[in-house]
Design a binder for these strands. Structure first.
Length: 561
RNA sequence: UGGGGUGUAGCCAAGUGGUAAGGCAACGGGUUUUGAUCCCGUGAUUCGCAGGUUCGAUCCCUGCCACCCCAGCCA
């Protein structure tokens, strides 16, 4: 624990609890996902919070699956969630649990509530219960079944569990206060009949506990001391405490709420993410444009960058929307330090060096990292015919364009300074190639003559040696900062969220890059090989490099109009 | 128009009675064979608004305004 660092309000609250002697100094948290989808960047904040709080206080954190709704949950999500939490770098040890582990105990607690006259079986239909609940401004009405005897409730509840009734025929409700201004206290449902097979308990149960009941008791049963959840559960807290007051639990956890993380230009709601998949806007939970952890991983994000991001955004109760750039910047910062540099030409245009002998190859050393000489270097082949980036040549460039132009000079990185002598076009007026000459005295590192300065430096690849590859360039999934606001998700999609460069070339060394290890394509960004090997050699761009030229270009364009 | 929350710079975020930390972004400058990295520098007479208490208020009090959440047998 770093005492000098500003502590978030949750850690401060725990400090105070500990100072007051709570829980014999123990701190136990839990991350409780429902296995009905993949974890996204918003979940990462909660994962980080729960695990790092536990670590800071020498406590521990459970990974608990909140699997109380068999109709929506699936073990494949359980596996995906475990993988993601582990990938982020957190270890739950032997503290992997499920709400369903406690179903027997939960059932007993429900019986206890019934026996205490604190719960009853209601036989109203869902629709009737809704109308009886009242509205935000009008109190609800008691159900006609509210005063059934303990014996009748017990009998009915046991028969619900025994499968004697159809789905929806009855529901177990807490008996609290139908006139409460807090809707959560208007006799909330505790158990519903659902004759569905559960991914873990199979057919053992046909009644399933509701979130509030299951969650509170699971927390208490596991010894959670601090139950950290998001803001929308704030007015469930009185109910959480009501359960703890009614039931004889050995442990009394404290619920503390914090605001969820929202990221601009994307959505962080499992419901909407699922829609994107179901409507075919993306290819799945791990489509690299998705904000899921699986997608970010596939795209080339490192777990370290995500953990760092979560630490930087902090923990408060204020509704926030973080700029996308904040996340990207965390990745750039991490990768700038660790990613080796390589060369790729995504949209090639040919250059012919007229004064370089045909058929010859010169090998030129290129550093693997400009600031880390210990990472070594490799040799790049240089020959008469090269590929350069189409963007690095302009026939009629604006002011301040430092790259290649007719009659202009540019440095080929790690190689020579060349001059564009002629733009050779085909009959259709399309550029066939650029005829260039090289200054033979300017080979990188070859002495004083090579120190000659030119304005620009561009990257290149020997056409005879480069390997073809497909490169996927990703951009924000939506074109509006808050896509969740409108109901027409599709209309807000960014049509350029994926651009495929199928005619790209990469240096030979890239053909056997370790999967999952990000590299920097010089001047282009950070890339990683895609795990889908059936697609051949394919790279995904995780993030671009910071691009002040692009910004300048935009400003120049604007000032001209 | 019930209840629960939140409002400090473009985005986050400390500070919580003694005169506004930090990060990201933005802008200016330096270094540079990645228009990258790196380095240096620049921002709130002011803390949603209005009153009040106080020698002194972002911090305490009162009122107001804005925004978010709640009427699943979802979580």
């Amino acid at each position: 624990m770093e005492a000098n660092k500003p502590r978030d309000f949750i850690r401060q609250a725990i400090d105070a609890d500990l100072a007051a002697g709570a829980n014999q100094g123990r701190v136990v948290t839990r991350f409780p996902p429902e296995p009905n989808g993949y974890l996204h960047i918003g979940h990462a904040k909660s994962v980080c919070l729960n695990f790092t709080v536990a670590a800071d206080f020498d406590g521990h954190c459970f990974l608990r699956f909140d699997d109380t709704n068999p109709d929506k949950e699936d073990s494949r999500f359980v596996d995906a969630i475990k993988e993601d939490v582990h990938w982020l770098g957190f270890d739950w040890g032997d503290r992997l649990t499920h709400a369903s582990d406690y179903f027997e105990s939960l059932f007993e607690s429900a019986v206890t509530l019934i026996e205490a006259g604190k719960a009853y079986v209601d036989s109203l239909t869902a629709e009737e219960i809704r109308t009886h609940r009242g509205t935000l401004t009008e109190p609800g009405k008691n159900s006609p079944y509210r005063n059934r005897s303990v014996e009748e409730n017990l009998d009915l509840f046991r028969r619900m569990a025994a499968g004697e009734f159809e789905d929806g025929a009855h529901v177990l409700r807490a008996k609290i206060d139908m006139a409460s201004p807090n809707m959560n206290l208007r006799d909330p449902a505790l158990y519903r009949i659902r004759k569905s097979r559960h991914q873990r308990t199979q057919d053992r149960w046909c009644i399933y506990p509701m979130y509030d009941f299951a969650h509170t008791l699971s927390d208490a049963l596991e010894g959670t001391t601090h139950s950290l959840c998001t803001l929308e559960f704030e007015d469930h807290r009185p109910l959480y405490e009501w359960f703890l007051d009614q039931l004889p639990m050995a442990n009394r956890p404290r619920q503390i709420e914090f605001s969820r993380l929202n990221l601009a230009f994307t959505v962080t709601s499992k419901r909407l993410l699922k829609r994107l998949i179901d409507e075919g806007h993306v290819q799945g939970w791990d489509d690299p444009r998705m904000p899921t952890l699986a997608a970010l991983r596939r795209r080339g994000y490192t777990p370290e960058s995500i953990v760092d991001f979560c630490a930087r955004v902090g923990v408060t109760k204020k509704d926030t929307t973080i700029e996308l750039g904040a996340l990207e910047n965390c990745l750039r910062e991490d990768l700038n330090e660790r990613a080796e540099r390589r060369v790729a030409v995504l949209d090639p245009i040919k250059v012919v060096i007229e004064n370089f002998p045909d058929g010859e190859t010169e090998w030129l050393p290129a550093a693997n990292h400009p600031n880390r000489p210990e990472l070594g270097e490799r040799d790049l082949p240089f020959s008469r015919e090269l590929w350069i980036e189409r963007d690095d040549f302009m026939e009629d460039p604006p002011r301040k364009f430092f790259r290649l132009k007719p009659g202009g000079e540019v440095r080929l990185r790690y190689a020579y300074i060349i001059k564009c002598e002629e733009v050779v076009k085909d009959a259709a007026g399309k550029i066939s190639y650029l005829r260039c000459s090289m200054d033979v005295d300017t080979r990188s590192g070859s002495g004083p003559a090579a120190m000659r300065k030119v304005k620009g430096t561009i990257h290149w690849l020997s056409a005879a040696h480069a390997k073809p590859a497909e490169v996927h360039l990703y951009d924000r999934l939506f074109k509006v900062p808050n896509p969740a606001a409108g109901d027409d998700l599709a209309a807000d999609l960014n049509p350029d969220s994926l651009v495929v460069r199928s005619n790209a070339f990469v240096e030979a060394a890239l053909a056997d890059l370790t999967p999952g290890v990000p590299v920097q394509f010089e001047r282009l960004g950070y890339f990683v090989t895609d795990p889908d090997v059936t697609a051949g050699l394919r790279f995904n761009r995780a993030v671009t490099l910071r691009d002040t030229w692009a910004k300048l270009e935009r400003q120049l364009l604007q000032s001209e109009t």
